[in-house]
Write a protein that binds this DNA or RNA. Sequence first.
DNA 1: TAGGCCATCTGGTCCT
DNA 2: AGGACCAGATGGCCTA
Length: 220
Amino acid sequence: MAELKSLGGEAYLALAPGYGPSAFAYGGAEGPRGAYAGGGGADFHPGALGKSAESSGEQSGDEEDGFEAGVKGSAAFEREGKLKAAALGKKPKEQRSLRLSINARERRRMHDLNDALDGLRSVIPYAHSPSVRKLSKIATLLLAKNYILMQAQALEEMRRLVAYLNQGQALSAPLPATLNPFGQSAVYPFTGTALPGCPEKCTAFTGAASALCKHCSDKP
DNA sequence: TAGGCCATCTGGTCCT
DNA sequence: AGGACCAGATGGCCTA
């Protein structure tokens, strides 16, 4: 597992091999291309003129033609289009128009997907500085997954801690159901061995110092 | 130069 | 029929 130490070494930053360091190894202002990321790089495909603009915006027919201009396999495309058109009983012109429409829709769909990924990047606490390369798609997804798992773990820990503290207040009295809505144990929840740095009752049950535990965080 | 990442095109499949 | 979704193919840009 590749560890993204540059991002603080959080557990959730562990990514699958190949998706970690490469995403952060070098600082470009915007990523390798800075193309679709909103800033509007026009430096991409010769035909990709709609790139910097809206993600879901309309493309005119002319723009679509612009996309198509210079696209690979024009001859093959035409040939295939004619064949298909003949097969479907449509004129090649209609067939091409349909194809352009489909292409535009697909482009829009992918732009929406990229927007969603941008939104995801914006809420993942990784280094957002300009000196850090933008997360790749796969890195974004893996990071998000690990972050969610980490948050769930922290939440679980907090619930157990709250349950334990509540139990301490009430001594041996069982927790009211309303105070234990998550089905957690109402008794001492920590099953791990006591940490040397935290002899108190809040010893981390996971076997690691708890960020929620004052004593754990106070001790060196 | 190889490899990674990306945008786009394209055809197929499924759904409404 | 038309749209959404998906995966493969292709080609461009960038970095190590």
